[in-house]
Design a binder for these strands. Structure first.
Length: 801
RNA sequence: GCGAAGGUGGCGGAAUGGCAUACGCGCUAGCUUGAGGUGCUAGUGACAGCAAUGUCGUGUGGGUUCAAGUCCCAUCCUUCGCACCA
């Protein structure tokens, strides 16, 4: 009988569904395991071959855990709000809700054809009002705690589409859709105070098991730096506060720079002699796009403020003040002291404007470049700091600043507050009304969900307002506080909102009175293993940790961190090694692979393709190799030997493979786990036959990887019950060893011979056996033995002179 | 510029400091088959050699070690992320 995956795969998918084989049960006395993959955005393009890679990986973990006796939650859902759907809806004059339903149906069918053991009874969809009711509820809690506020913020504005763009839609300074020029525009936006959690988001990384590169990039993104704020005084007698990470170099400050947006300019306009020149520069800086600023990052520009100078508090010297766009208003105080000798940007600026460069840390060559090293170097030209190291000088100057009330230590973060508004239709409405009398007022929780109203056109307005602003029946309402006339907020939430808490909803997806029942959250949380793409490390992963910490603070969730373990997969590239894309013509459709080779081959190949954490190019030939392996496993049933028990010749090999596969699955080494099973099969085929017991073990090991074929073979060969209800095989460490082991013999580190020695042969015997070998004797003849090294079960090395 | 990951056969990739190239693909030869985008067997890092065997070999240059793909120092290149964060 031939391996007919086209019949087998739908057959078992149906059985699993009917038997609710993978349902997570609410029996809170059992040991639990919560495995999570990032729920997809159901785009119109359908599933990409990249999607099944993480899904299969955690499916393997989930299936293994079930066989190990855990109550496993492995859920799936849809992150369905978002721009592509809205754009598609606009172009085709179809409601996004309908598009979403179609896409979800398509994605679900594709995912099911791959045999993932998702608990489909817990499916969630962020666009479902019963779901986004709770997204809005969380927003209201943030608002009530002062963590959501409205503020002016700079947004990307396409001058040709007249629409606000997300950062992702801006490609090289141009609109992704029309290619038009994108400029900054200041608009009033809802913001979330993620910065309030910056320190905890760094500190608590110590409490979780994330792969290092995820922790590192989160830390870099949050960008904590320690330094000091120092009070300078201007010649007008006003205080000008700066932030520096190098207070030790205060004696080397030869000028100051403030951001073009710094408020001092407007406040002191009357005293600035060249105010016109300053204003021209301000306007030019405002017009520059991010792209332009980055392009000309190296060429420093600026204008010296005439009429106001600053006094260096440490030596009372008067120094000039410049405005320059290399100082950002959004970081620190928007003003810096410039120490050209020890900062590369200040150095470039000083060279361009011919400003003095004073060395205060000896150790470099400031004729050539700024000396920025903090680890070496000694303070010079710095009064009472002279002779100290940089670190000592930092401590000494901060103490001095504090004693004289001229400054204090300060921590800053690169992380900015989260711009939470989108002027779009297809997102969660923000549940706030604006009342002339009462200001921003949250709508009562009893009115949630605030549903997205039906509208005619999804186009934003001419001036970039949300399409919802055109619907008067939605906009005009009454103030929940005073009862007077009020207007609803017409912005919607970003796509990141719904995905910041979806893993909580899986715990109790149908709850109508809370985002999830407390007992359910207490049982299932934290997520034991969360796998997702590196591209979500700094946005989604950080946002969801922030929300989770907030929910912890208000007593909604039982733990401080949502995810106990985080891993990340590499991308699957096209056969030519480039990223898969329609324009490159290298896209592989998973449906074609399932149809031609079967889901099991597809799953096996995606796990065998290479190191799970690295990107790897698709190869149709390697895929065929995986199909060949499954064919051989299938054909093996013809050579089964009657009777039970293990075949002695294969016993060690089986125990070793159980160990290897079990351990590799835990460490993301799916590729070597499969290689181990292939090796085992090769070894089996050197024997005359295989016992039924051994075949069963092989099927069990392969089951998480290739669930359909193994379930079929299990049934076909008369084993008891259904495979998914059995137990994961265990190995005996003592039985993993062979009786005799091949040991390499080296002379002076070069292989001369190989010997078969008994396992755990003592050093003396191994060396003696090596010396008795004729090839070794030839190599050491007439030479003096200096050293003898024996590594048990590995090698012997004889060092001669 | 900063940060992260990575450079190993013809290709994808293996290797707690201990036999480099496991496993798979591809290729070569033979067998099987009416046929083959089938199956099986053997071979397959480079160079020299009829052969046994020898020499070289993990981006490059040094170092530590009995022993280095692996550890240390320097350097080059590739990919990705951030981008004037004081």
């Amino acid at each position: 009988m031939k391996y007919n995956f086209q019949e087998i795969e739908p057959k078992w998918q149906k059985i699993w569904e009917e038997k609710k084989a993978f349902r997570a049960v609410n029996d809170y006395t059992k040991p639990k395991y919560y495995a999570l993959i990032e729920f997809p955005y159901p785009s119109g393009k359908g599933l990409h071959v990249g999607h099944p890679r993480p899904y299969t990986a955690l499916d393997i973990v989930a299936r293994k855990r079930r066989l190990e006796g855990y109550n496993v939650l492995y859920p799936m859902g849809w992150d369905a709000f978002g721009l592509p759907t809205e754009n598609y809806a606009m172009q085709n004059h179809i409601h996004p809700e309908i598009v979403t339903a179609q896409n979800v149906a398509h994605f679900k069918k594709q995912a099911q054809s791959l045999g993932f053991s998702f608990d489909w009874d817990r499916e969630v969809n962020t666009t479902d009002p019963a779901y986004y009711k709770w997204t809005q509820w969380i927003f209201l809690q943030l608002f009530k705690k002062g963590l959501a506020y409205k503020s002016e913020a700079s947004v990307n504005w396409c001058t040709s589409c007249k629409v606000v763009l997300a950062n992702e839609e801006v490609v090289n300074g141009a609109c992704e859709r029309c290619g038009g020029e994108v400029v900054h525009k200041v608009k009033s936006q809802w913001m979330l105070k993620i910065t309030e959690y910056a320190q905890r988001l760094i500190d608590d990384l110590d409490k979780v098991d994330y792969i290092d590169r995820v922790k590192t990039s989160q830390k870099n993104w949050i960008g904590r730096s320690t330094g000091a704020e120092v009070k300078f005084v201007t010649t007008l007698g006003d205080e000008l506060l700066i932030y520096t990470t190098r207070p030790d170099t205060l004696f080397g400050a030869t000028y100051m720079v403030i951001s073009p947006e710094h408020p001092m300019i407007a406040q002191k306009a009357d005293q600035i002699q060249n105010i016109e020149e300053i204003r021209v520069y301000q306007e030019a800086a405002a017009k520059k796009s991010d792209f332009e600023r980055a392009e000309i990052a190296k060429d420093k520009t600026g204008v010296c403020i005439q009429g106001i100078r600053a006094i260096n508090p440490v030596n009372q010297k008067e120094i000039p003040i410049y405005i320059s766009d290399y100082v950002l208003m959004s970081y620190g105080t928007g003003a810096i002291m410039a120490v050209p000798a020890h900062d590369t940007r200040d150095y470039d600026f000083a060279k361009a404007f011919d400003l003095p460069i004073v060395e205060v840390v000896a150790g470099g060559d400031i004729e050539k470049e700024a000396f920025t090293d903090c680890a070496t170097g000694t303070m010079v030209n710095s009064g009472f700091l002279d002779g100290l190291s940089v670190e000592e000088a930092k401590a000494a100057i901060i103490q001095w600043l504090e004693e004289n009330n001229l400054g204090y230590p300060k921590v800053n973060f690169k992380l900015r507050d989260w711009v939470f508004s989108r002027q779009r239709y297809w997102g969660e409405p923000i549940p706030i009304v604006h009342c002339e009398q009462c200001g921003f007022v949250p709508i009562p929780e009893s009115e949630l969900p605030l549903r997205l109203p039906e509208i005619e056109s999804f186009e934003p307005t001419e001036d970039g307002q949300s399409p919802l602003s055109k619907l008067e029946s939605f906009v005009n309402t009454t103030c929940p506080h005073c009862g007077g006339p009020a207007k609803r907020e017409t912005d919607t939430m970003p796509q990141w909102a719904g995905s910041s808490w979806y893993f909580l909803r899986y715990c109790d997806p149908d709850n109508v009175s809370a985002l999830a029942a407390k007992e359910a959250l207490e049982y299932w949380l934290p997520v034991d293993w969360y796998n997702g793409g590196m591209e979500h490390t700094t946005l989604h992963l950080l946002y969801s940790r922030f929300w989770h910490k907030f929910l912890y603070d208000i007593g909604v969730v039982p733990c401080e961190e949502p995810y106990a373990k985080r891993t990340s997969h590499g991308m699957i590239l096209g056969e030519n090694g480039e990223k898969m894309s329609k324009s490159r013509g290298n896209v592989v459709n998973p449906d074609d692979i399932v149809a031609e080779y079967g889901a099991d081959t597809m799953r096996l190949y995606e796990m065998f393709i290479g190191d799970f954490e690295k990107s790897a190019p698709w190869s149709q030939n390697s895929l065929k190799g995986c199909k060949r392996f499954l064919d051989r496993v299938w054909n093996l049933q013809d050579s089964l030997i009657d009777g039970e028990g293990y075949s002695p010749a294969l016993e060690a090999a089986f125990h070793r493979t159980i160990k290897k596969v079990s351990e590799d699955i835990e460490h993301l080494k799916f590729n070597t786990a499969i290689a181990a099973m292939m090796s085992l099969l090769n070894e089996i085929q050197t024997q005359d036959g295989l016992t039924r017991t051994d075949y069963r073990t092989l099927l069990m090991l392969l089951n998480p990887f290739a669930p359909h074929i193994t379930e079929e073979l299990y049934q076909l060969n008369g084993y008891e019950g259904l495979l998914f209800e059995q137990s994961w095989p265990v190995y005996d460490a003592d039985k993993c060893k062979e009786d005799t082991i091949e040991v390499a013999v080296q002379v002076n580190g070069k292989i001369k011979s190989k010997l078969n020695l008994p396992a755990d042969c003592p050093k003396e015997e191994a060396v003696a056996a090596a010396k008795a070998d004729s090839k070794v004797q030839a190599a050491i003849q007439g030479k003096q033995i200096v050293k003898e090294i024996a590594v048990p079960n590995k090698l012997v090395n004889i060092v001669v002179k």
